[in-house]
Nucleic acid binder design. Sequence first.
DNA 1: ACGCTATTGTAGCCAAGGCTACATGGAGGT
DNA 2: ACCTCCATGTAGCCTTGGCTACAATAGCGT
Lengths: 150, 150
Amino acid sequence: MPGAKRSRTTNSGPRWALASQAERFRSARAAHADETAEDYAEAIADLIAREGSARVTALAACLGVSHVTVIRALARLSRGGLVVVMPYKGVALTRAGRALAARAKHRHGVVLAFLRALGVPARVAETDAEGLEHHVSPATLRAMERFVKR
Amino acid sequence: MPGAKRSRTTNSGPRWALASQAERFRSARAAHADETAEDYAEAIADLIAREGSARVTALAACLGVSHVTVIRALARLSRGGLVVVMPYKGVALTRAGRALAARAKHRHGVVLAFLRALGVPARVAETDAEGLEHHVSPATLRAMERFVKR
DNA sequence: ACGCTATTGTAGCCAAGGCTACATGGAGGT
DNA sequence: ACCTCCATGTAGCCTTGGCTACAATAGCGT
Ligand SMILES: [Mn+2]
Ligand SMILES: [Mn+2]
Ligand SMILES: [Mn+2]
Ligand SMILES: [Mn+2]
């Protein structure tokens, strides 16, 4: 008979498969939790470098969200000790914030250069890099760097 | 004087930079919106293939979330016409659901094979692929396939 | 036939990340 | 000095995606 009835606890595949698959999903969810902080830190550092200051409105335009969304995100990052908000003056990065921005910027650059080296068109590479970067582990990042340097 | 005061509308960098950066962030957010559907479709198809049915409990174990989370996600996917839930029997994929699962599974496979080919250790590759897959555009996917086939 | 146990479902909580509409504040230009 | 405009902040709403605790039910084994 088809779908031969197996006792309720039996399951064909390898015993470790399910648990470690769950771990993979957990990792992806954890990456998403860090994503906002990374993107904000990088955007703030860029704005300060390019315009001398990072204003809430500029951040909103840059990230493609409303200023309200930025204000609330900054409040969270501030509680987390990554930024200092100076109303009507701009947002500054703390030491930890600058460190995060530097790591994010570096990784972003590597991922982008990697995609370009792979032969992905510039515009597409730029778009994909913005999402991919947050899921690139240190080991994969090293592999990408190796590849970029031929 | 340092930080030479620029008129309020001036901004150094290229004029198009901000808007298109916003577009990149919007794309990444859009990818996240599809992520749950893709992962669920793929997991359901896998469970059906491996065990003959996809039960809520099995999905929860597989995805690393509580059964409540699965039930609610399935309700949304059901409203979206991707799955049909048959209580105490299992979850079935609709035609659209099967198509999504097939695309997701293929892309996942390519991303994983690509990382392996790049020299990323198996465990790390499996973990990274779970998050990366959702941000790989068709153009990048093709580039990865090309690379895997040397 | 009946009870146990595992599966499924509900209620209600939380945080994040979006939004619009409206309120307040700063600062430049007149 | 003051007006006006823009930047900032608040109130309140929504959806997604987590969770725990508890309720209901299917179906197996006795
Ligand atoms: Mn980035
Ligand atoms: Mn990003
Ligand atoms: Mn992602
Ligand atoms: Mn995935």
